[in-house]
Simulated assay, not measured.
Amino acid sequence: MSENTAERVRERAEASEGPPPVWSGRAVAAGAGALYVGAALAVEVYGFAGLAAEAPAQGEGPEGAMLVVPFLTCLGVPSALVANVWLVLPTVSAARWASARLTGRDAWWWVPVMALVPVSAATAVVGISKHLGAGAPAWAWLTGVVLLAGAALIARDAALHGRRLLRVLGYGGLAAVAVFGVGAAAFGTGLVTEYSPPKVNAAGLVGTWSDGHGGILRLSPDGTARADDLKFHCTGTGTWSYAPDGPTAWDQLVLTEFEDCAPDWRISGTPGHPKLNREYGVVDDPHWYTLTR
């Protein structure tokens, strides 16, 4: 008896006894592979999205984002296996239990329904604790739902019908090529425009800049500056200057110097509403402190 025939016989035997168990090696492999592929595709998509989004520093685009792939391979594969065991397969099990209790059968559409629960809870906790606006949590929630629901559906399919890992990796590679092609065409044809900060001059920077929480930076036409309660314990009277540090709008800097601090500011925003930005935090988790007028 051939191996394929034996596999079909085994699957028919399992089917006669009810749905195969979710906690199987093939479900673990397929679910982890789906998480890994989904994360790589998300990195690629967000790389393209970062080119069009307003930012205080120039994004690396999909090319830079794909440099993360080796990191994903080294640490992402073990992380995907752990996330699959602790999150994906429990989601499939919960969906099977709820479906059997409420409908009397194992319906696939319960999987995305159950995926909403942990992702929504995690997004709410992070959004509230970090005091985030609506935009970032919404995108994080959508990404999390797609990743978890997709991986759970593939793990469920592998548990019911057999190995799916090679198929997931193959389709994932084709999807990565398709995403790159669509993104490159969108930017190449001008359908989507890459963001660039507004080009400013010294005269246009004069005025009062605020962080919205009591921090103030006043830039005077004579080159003097006044800081009140800025981050980094920056307060007092000092000087400022505008320093285009290169040929592009990304190279613009506003240099300020006070007795206890000397922050440099990058330009972002729009021509009608420019912003001053200062990076802070650790290298692996940078944040931006922003002033507006």
Results as ranks from 00 to 15, higher is better:
Gly150Asp: 02
Thr123His: 08
Ala243Asn: 14
Gly38His: 04
Gly183Cys: 04
Pro286Ile: 01
Pro244Glu: 07
Arg218Trp: 10
Met66Ser: 13
Ser210Val: 13
Trp23Ala: 15
Leu169Asn: 01
Arg105His: 14
Gly181Lys: 05
Val82Asn: 07
Phe180Ile: 07
Ala155Val: 06
Val88Pro: 13
Leu230Gly: 09
Ser210Met: 04
Val68Trp: 13
Val111Cys: 09
Ala225Thr: 02
Ser93Thr: 10
Leu87Ser: 12
Cys234Ser: 14
Ala100Lys: 15
Val283Ile: 14
Gly204Asn: 11
Trp141Thr: 01
Asp222Trp: 09
Ser93Ile: 05
Ser241Gly: 12
Leu67Trp: 10
Val125Thr: 08
Arg218Cys: 14
Ala100Tyr: 07
Val111Arg: 09
Ser210Ile: 07
Ala49Cys: 01
Ala151Lys: 07
Pro274Phe: 00
Thr189Pro: 04
Ala151Asn: 09
Arg12Gln: 12
Thr73Asp: 03
Gly269Val: 00
Leu169Arg: 00
Ala94Ser: 11
Leu230Tyr: 05
Thr237Gly: 09
Thr193Leu: 09
Trp23Glu: 13
Gly214Leu: 04
Asp245Trp: 14
Gly214Trp: 06
Pro271Tyr: 00
Cys234Asp: 13
Glu3Ala: 07
Glu54Phe: 04
Ala262Phe: 00
Ala34Pro: 14
Ala27Leu: 03
Cys234Asn: 15
His161Lys: 07
Phe258Leu: 00
